[in-house]
Design a protein around this nucleic acid. Structure first.
Lengths: 133, 133
DNA sequence: TACAATTCCTACTAACCTTATAGGGATTAT
DNA sequence: ATAATCCCTATAAGGTTAGTAGGAATTGTA
């Protein structure tokens, strides 16, 4: 697992929305301004979040985004997988992105990687957006 | 941390050398043939290992590579850092490759990443080539 | 000495990924 | 109508990955 700005930006945006006291939708312009995120880039990431059911959106004036489910139902693991792929250090020990890699032959080394994968996976599956609010 | 073929190939090569019963130097041609690794690409990686003091080499006929220090003194962590950079999931919690990232603002999330970094680092620092032989 | 086998060094490259920017279309409250 | 918003697609600069290519330097052996 390696985080890129995609995951990192998305966490800032989701947390911003989750913390917001306002009832309605939060426009991206506000989030981008407050968190200093590149607006047009964020638009794409927000769409991905909508399509995957984490956010719901409303167009037009008074539009924006809000959480489509409670913060405690959104795990850190899901978001990272969605934007930056496997949590595992190598795909040969990944559950969701499995494929054979050169390391696959070395069973002991693979075991070490598997343990890391299990730890990381467990830590991130059990941590939700609500936990980091 | 994310492994590329660089680290993975290098582990195969080092293990191959470490397992070899022969006294002298092992030529790369032999390793590349046995492990089916791209020879000219490996040359570059082997040089990096030499320059960093993990292997010593001899040119010419009967030349090749051998370990420059005992297998139990070479940690998995060192090799991965050398070829694939930080063990941490994001550089804002990396010791050797630290820099500020967007996530730096979110202290709780950063804490989660820090714990992962600590676990991975510890696991890989204490595991050596000798352990995975 | 000549040769063959090796490492050493540098340059180059195709394909892919990251991090955006750009322009416009569709929708909606006022 | 208008302004503000999200939606969609195309494009691109720069970096990374995974090599290939060609030759220089070194060394044991015939």
């Amino acid at each position: 697992m390696k985080l890129t700005t995609r995951s990192e930006y998305v966490f800032l945006a989701i947390l911003s929305i989750a913390r917001s006291k306002e009832k309605g939708y939060i426009p991206l312009s506000k989030i981008a301004r407050e968190q200093k995120l590149p607006m047009k880039y964020m638009e794409q990431l927000m769409q991905t979040l909508c399509r995957s059911g984490y956010l719901s959106s409303s167009r037009g004036k008074e539009g924006g985004y809000r959480l489509a489910k409670p913060a405690r139902k959104i795990t850190i693991a899901e978001i990272i997988r969605l934007f930056d792929g496997p949590l595992a250090p190598t795909e040969s020990v990944s559950t969701y992105f499995y494929r054979l890699t050169p390391l696959s032959r070395e069973k002991k080394l693979l075991g070490v990687m598997q343990e890391i994968r299990d730890y990381v996976s467990n830590a991130l599956e059990k941590t939700t957006i609500a936990d980091v609010l």
